[in-house]
Amino acid sequence: MYAQMIQSEASQDDPQKLAEFQARIDADIKIEPRDWMPEGYRKTLIRQIGQHAHSEIVGQLPEGNWITRAPTLERKMILLAKVQDEAGHGLYLYCAAETLGVSRDDLTEQLLSGKMKYSSIFNYPTLTWADIGAVGWLVDGAAIMNQVPLQRTSYGPYSRAMIRICKEESFHQRQGFDIMMKMAQGTEAQRRMAQDALNRFWYPSLMMFGPSDAESVHSTQNMAWKIKMNTNDELRQKFVDQTVPQAEFLGLTVPDENLAWNEEKGGYDFSEPDWSEFFDVLKGNGPCNTERLEARNKAWDDGAWVREGLLAHAEKKRARKTAAE
């Protein structure tokens, strides 16, 4: 998911207040920025929303990698609009995090120094045009699984950001599938590209949901706070059940010999991804971790004079206006 492995913070608050807080959440009353909240809730949310925002911003890079090589004018515009949406989603989420008393610049610094994480999926390369299809179809497909329920999350600003994001996101997965259809129905080379993209993105997409957390105390607490709405396994199962028929429609083969319909559970049985690879990627050893952080750092450092220049001008203007009054 865009926020993976979020640990909850223990709270040392007044039990009476905690009970009232939990009662509000249980009654589906939204928590708003100026309401009392347990310190653990606040810190966990900053971590989760911040990581989600970072994922949107870093997520611009693998797809942005193909904007200048998109094969038609229309594809170029669609891809540019989509990657621009991701910048917008990052912006909405940073703003939601800011209501919790952290600044966007603080969060940015933590991303750039490697202290805060972003989704593991964006550390994989986009090698062919079919990868852009696969990212839309699989990666956005997996993200939507998580984002739709998060519209009901307990924290008001987060919930409102997710509602806006889901509204704008609806075309992302569709455009990805549309690319895959064109590729799957295309030339021999295009079909090979499409299958290769599915082969490379299948397991990393399953990893997006994170390892099983059915037994995790963090997960239990976060679900009680309604900042996590489903377990990782539930969402992963739902994703596989939704995606396998789509792959069949495309005439592509999901790279899993153990994939089989299980009548009894009403879902597919499937192989677990290689979790050692997942932890390697989180540690910084994915194929593109270095490039992604370098690109974000370069944009931030190269842009410093612009941010400072425009702010200095605004201050001069204000001073001149005050002097004239």
Binding site: Q84, A87, L91, A295, W300, G303
Partner: peptide
Amino acid sequence: SEWCGHAPVLEEDIALA
């Protein structure tokens, strides 16, 4: 479009796009 994802601040990134 080469700027997308690389602008000095998110607001400018969106505006350039």
